[in-house]
Computed example of a mutant assay.
Amino acid sequence: MTAIETPERDADYRVPALQRGLTILGMFSARERILGMSDMAERLEISTSAVYRIVQTLVDMGYLQRVGRNAFELGTKVISDGFSYLASRDIVEVSMPHLNALRDRTSLSCHLSIREQTDSLYLYRAFAPQRLTVNIPIGTRLPCHSTAMGRMLLTGLDEAELGQLYQHVRLDDYPAPAPRTLPELQQLIAQDRERGWVLHRSDYSTAIATGIHDHQGQVVAAINLSGPDAVMDTSFAQESFLTTLLASRDSISRELGG
């Protein structure tokens, strides 16, 4: 006989410390930006010594920051993660119709990605229904330095920031044409930044990518056109596709305030 799940049974799987930590984060609002540890303990109906370890963990992780001896406010981790989520959601919603139209005009697949550390994270694809096409699923992560969109995402960093990001990353494990040293990567990204677009060939396919800019002029995402070499391997085709891609970039950037 199968056991029937009940609220009491579900409660057995709860993690009290995690539940209390999330409850603490939920206590902060526009009206209450700063809370004392005693306030948190009183609302949770636990002792201040019990709440201390939870608060300290949240401080260590960046979700809370101390503003007094026993006073706290939301930390930069909450704010940056929240804005990153909202920004990525806005980027997808704004870019979607433009990428769909770009696919329809070119009959090539189009993708949208953002940078997470050294990875290019694919957020959207406009799939071209051809027998020979490039189709990278949403959620895929690829190393930035070895892809066209990833390289465009790296152009949002200056040379020092790029060096700091890749100071502990081995590059010589990747096949050509990916750069194999940090100075080579820095030189390549400087050229990409000046050009404003990247053309990259791999596995019988070609991708052309460019960056999306926000209202501050920062590179916040990248888009591409990608297809088989048989379609894209002429200078006339590449120039035509690039012109269309850059027009879509400008339209998306304008809607994001760029």
Rank of each mutant, 00 (worst) to 15 (best):
Arg131Lys: 14
Asn135Gly: 03
Glu239Ser: 11
Ser248Thr: 15
Ser251Gly: 03
Phe127Glu: 13
Ile189Ser: 00
Leu199Ile: 14
Ser253Gln: 07
Gln186Asn: 01
Ser205Asp: 10
Trp197Gln: 07
Ser248Lys: 09
Gln164Phe: 02
Asn224Leu: 03
Pro177Gln: 08
Thr140Cys: 04
Phe127Asp: 14
Leu185Arg: 02
Gly156Trp: 04
Gln216Lys: 12
Tyr166Lys: 03
Gly196Thr: 04
Ser205Cys: 15
Ala237Ile: 08
Ala237Arg: 09
Ser235Gly: 05
Gly196Ile: 01
Phe241Trp: 02
Leu245Trp: 03
Phe127Gly: 01
Ser205Leu: 05
Met149Phe: 10
Pro175Lys: 08
Ser251Gln: 14
Glu159His: 10
Pro179Cys: 06
Ala160Asp: 13
Trp197Val: 05
Asp233Pro: 06
Cys144Leu: 05
Thr133Gln: 11
Ser205Ile: 11
His168Cys: 10
Phe241Ala: 06
Leu185His: 00
Ser146Ala: 15
Thr234Glu: 06
Arg193Leu: 03
Ala176Gly: 00
Ile223Trp: 04
Ala207Met: 09
Val220Leu: 01
Thr140Ile: 02
Ala222Gly: 09
Val231Ala: 12
Ala230Phe: 12
Arg254Tyr: 09
Gly196Gln: 03
Ala209Ser: 13
Met232Gly: 12
Gln218Val: 00
Pro228Asn: 12
Ser235His: 14
Val198Ala: 09
Ala221Leu: 13
His168Gly: 10
Gly163Leu: 05
Gly257Lys: 03
Ser248His: 08
Met152Asp: 00
Asp229Pro: 11
Glu159Asp: 14
His200Phe: 15
His200Glu: 13
Thr147Arg: 01
Pro179Leu: 06
Ser226Gly: 02
Phe236Tyr: 14
Ala190Val: 02
Arg131Gly: 12
Gln186Pro: 00
Leu199Pro: 03
Leu165Gln: 12
His213Gly: 02
Asp173Asn: 14
Asp233Glu: 11
Arg193Gly: 04
Glu255Met: 10
